[in-house]
């Protein structure tokens, strides 16, 4: 068993355990903390793939921006307590059954399709440095210029929408 495989198993165990604890823990603040740990372990997976830029961006965007947004919302609503009522038992049972059936079915499908056993091609050339990623993203002919611009429009619209939605409404009479 190579050390890389051991690192992978440890990271995968952390990822799955923290993802499960995110859903299981009653206090939303604890859920948010576990989710941060989950995101960090996923960034570890990206580092394992040698995708450094993606790992950094992942940490900045998810652990930095999105989780701060979650934490601020939780604090704003003062949800820092464990008073959540459970769903009815039949719904919870249905959720657990769905989880078990879905995961078993998907894992078995991919197990029996025998995805890609054997050697993996190595081209030897660099394909995931920042330089190469920028070239692929903003190339003249085959690049992703138009989706890039649309992403900026999407973020602008989301920003305006968030401000409008969370603005205090004036009492209308």
């Amino acid at each position: 068993m190579s050390p890389i495989l051991i690192i992978f198993y440890v990271l995968a165990a952390i990822t799955l355990a923290t993802a499960f604890l995110t859903i299981y823990s009653k206090n939303p603040i604890h859920s948010a903390i576990y989710l941060v740990l989950c995101f960090f372990s996923i960034a570890g997976h990206y580092l394992l793939f040698n995708a450094q830029f993606l790992a950094i961006v992942h940490v900045i965007v998810y652990s930095g921006a999105i989780m701060i947004l979650f934490l601020f919302t939780i604090m704003l609503m003062n949800l820092n307590k464990e008073d959540e009522v459970h769903k009815p038992r039949i719904t919870r049972l249905g959720a657990i059954t769905t989880f078990i059936l879905l995961s078993t079915a998907l894992v078995l499908i991919f197990m029996y399709s025998k995805p890609f056993v054997g050697d993996y091609p190595t081209t030897g050339e660099d394909f995931q440095s920042i330089k190469k990623l920028g070239t692929v993203l903003l190339d003249d002919k085959e690049g992703f210029m138009v989706p890039f611009e649309f992403a900026s429009i999407l973020l602008l619209v989301a920003m305006i929408g968030a401000v409008l939605l969370s603005k205090k409404e004036k009492p209308t009479k």
């Binding site: 939303p28 939780i74 009522v85 919870r92 657990i96 769905t98 879905l102």
Partner: peptide, 19 residues
């Protein structure tokens, strides 16, 4: 696949919209 299924489970199981 397992991570995705855990996400589906959370959507079905919890009542808190933030979770």
């Amino acid at each position: 696949v397992l991570l995705f299924c855990i996400g589906v489970f959370g959507v079905l199981y919890r009542r808190n919209a933030i979770i």
